[in-house]
Amino acid sequence: MSFSPESLEEFNSADADQVIALLSDLYGSTELATAVVAQRPFDSVDELCTTAQREFESMSDQLVMKSVQAHPPIGATVTAGSLSEKEQQAAMSSAERDKAAAMDRIRELNPKYQETFGHVFLIRASGLTSAEILERMEQRMGNDPDTEWAITREQLAGINELRVRGLFE
């Protein structure tokens, strides 16, 4: 990300193409980024997040799937310095002693999850230990595809909000 606003005011006044590029990286969706940027200026970060959530909820499953697939499988090797790396490391830094075993099991379940549901396992990992992530993954493996898709959309929305709020912290 080359553009990094230091304030909401800078975000609101920056060149639209710069902000679209920034949000596209965060969301994994140029369509969502474009829809959000078109509604600037925002009076607060809360308003920005609410607008993004509303736009996200109206996105087609096809567009959301494109955004989901922009995320690497949890526990997989991620690009150094990427948002995914930071989020996964934050989750793992609080993990207990059996972190390695839990991560091995997550890596083992990833292909089965993808085969079952047709997309990567997505979870808002911030603040979760590897054991908690594994527990949720195992629980979600029992879901029917429609239930799991609804949860995946919810998790992606949470990740999007976390990333946008992180811009201004």
Rank of each mutant, 00 (worst) to 15 (best):
M1F: 02
S2T: 11
F3R: 09
E6Y: 12
E9K: 09
N12D: 04
A14M: 09
A16R: 02
D17M: 13
I20D: 02
I20V: 12
L23H: 00
Y27I: 02
S29G: 00
T30G: 00
A35L: 08
V36M: 04
V36R: 02
A38N: 11
A38I: 02
Q39F: 08
F42C: 02
D43G: 08
D43N: 13
S44D: 02
V45F: 14
V45L: 11
V45W: 15
L48T: 01
L48A: 02
T50I: 11
T50M: 13
A52C: 14
Q53A: 14
Q53T: 13
R54H: 15
E55A: 06
E55D: 05
E57D: 15
S58L: 13
S58R: 08
S60N: 09
Q62I: 03
V64P: 03
V68H: 10
Q69A: 05
P72M: 00
P73R: 08
I74C: 00
I74F: 12
I74H: 01
G75A: 04
T77D: 06
T79F: 06
A80D: 05
G81F: 07
S82C: 04
K86H: 06
Q88R: 10
A90H: 11
A91S: 06
M92R: 09
S93Y: 10
S94I: 13
S94Y: 14
S94R: 15
A95K: 09
R97A: 10
R97Q: 08
R97E: 07
D98Q: 05
I106F: 14
I106C: 04
R107D: 01
N110E: 04
P111A: 01
P111L: 11
K112C: 03
Y113G: 00
T116C: 01
V120A: 00
L122D: 00
R124M: 07
S126T: 15
S126M: 15
T129H: 09
T129L: 09
E132Q: 08
E132K: 07
L134P: 01
R136Q: 02
R136V: 04
E138F: 15
Q139M: 12
N143L: 13
D144N: 12
P145H: 14
E148C: 11
E148G: 11
W149K: 04
W149T: 03
A150I: 13
I151N: 07
I151V: 12
I151Y: 15
I151K: 12
E154Y: 15
E161Y: 15
R163F: 11
L167A: 13
